[in-house]
Write a protein that binds this DNA or RNA. Sequence first.
DNA 1: GTTTGATTATGACTTTGAGTCAAAAACTAT
DNA 2: ATAGTTTTTGACTCAAAGTCATAATCAAAC
Lengths: 240, 240
Amino acid sequence: MSATTARKERERAAREELILDHAQRLLLRDGYQNLNLDELAEAVEYSKGTLYLHFSNKEDLALSVATRALQERADLFEQANQFTGRTRERIRAVGVACGEFARQHPAYFHVELMLKSASFWDRASEERKHLHSLQASRTFLSVNNIVQEAFRVGDISKVGTRPEEVTFGLVSVSMGSHIAAASRELAVACALADPFAVALKNGDIFCDGIGWKPLFADWDYAATDQRIRQELFPQATWLH
Amino acid sequence: MSATTARKERERAAREELILDHAQRLLLRDGYQNLNLDELAEAVEYSKGTLYLHFSNKEDLALSVATRALQERADLFEQANQFTGRTRERIRAVGVACGEFARQHPAYFHVELMLKSASFWDRASEERKHLHSLQASRTFLSVNNIVQEAFRVGDISKVGTRPEEVTFGLVSVSMGSHIAAASRELAVACALADPFAVALKNGDIFCDGIGWKPLFADWDYAATDQRIRQELFPQATWLH
DNA sequence: GTTTGATTATGACTTTGAGTCAAAAACTAT
DNA sequence: ATAGTTTTTGACTCAAAGTCATAATCAAAC
């Protein structure tokens, strides 16, 4: 690749990031339905045609926004995987990372939900779909690795249950909690103080339920939390 | 109200059901984005204008489809509430009802997810929104009643936890499991045999986690299941 | 520094489908 | 049968996604 082509490639990538930045902002403000490509073109100061040089259609664009966020999430998960300690402390680090991500990206779960609509996957390009599933695998493996090890070292010893079932449960609890917390009506009905904390708490209950040692009552997880925050998120400001 | 007016009202209601039936079918086949009102008008053999005599816009129509399904769900939940036995057996009856509903309405969770998109609630009519929240309350209360009683009789004795938090957890686990199970990729990665059974299993784990007595290991829940199926769903055919 | 051919960007245009409303059809009461 | 009222219609408007012929820009050769 010549020097010129390399520069062009860089410029193209930068423009794509610019488009994604604004698309994310508008998506967050208006939702997918009301995302207007004429307005987006206006915002990034390129023509609508140029948008289509990057993305094959609106779904493809939205999927890319979601994938970029998912990548950041996967990065956080893998970082959390570096945390040292008992396996249950490590899965907790992933839980905290997940909450931290949700705090920083209040719209992410909305976007992810949007992706569950079948029509999306019909229209998005194969390439973007592949990139998305790559990042999805990274988050899945981050969790599953820890669960596997927990079985290996005997911190989980539930007979008749495969590691993947536990991973599936953890993902379900986490996803469900965040989605449910995002539903204002339910959050109000349940008088939830901190919708992010509730996902962690539900995770604790689930882990206790499968008997993942050390159980919540048998360990100082407040200390673990503090260590997680110091080691993994030293920059973040913790209000509680 | 005169006899004529009464008849007209009946006819109008019947037409609305007809529209909702076909809308549900097309929504299931094509998703919300690709639901075409011209095609729907064609299918129900009324003009497009007539659709707008019933629903103020496309979102309003989709919300109505969702509400109708939710009503059926709330009916099942309230039926399940009649089940007699220990509180944990009763919550299990609700769980089975939830799974039975998911089996009968494979699209429901997709539609419910769609509703989480903010733009929906901006455009739907106040009346339809109210009807929806009414049905949502019914399902919430069905679960919350049992949880309250479990605290009252001492089957749950977790200090520092309010009943509503437990209810929120149960809803999260159930919703999360069904959504996660609907995601083909994850279900395949985890090699799930029965995506419906997994929601129940996750519920068991969660209940064990909060120490809801009798614990899963201390009671013959297979027998409870059989009783639930005989008493609540005698008509259904059980493959397992 | 000008020409030329290739690449890239544009925005006017096409198409699609949601939502409207004046006119037509159907119904009701006298 | 007729006049007045209500209901239904589908051609129309309008907004926004997606296209593509043309314009602008760029890179290499002379």
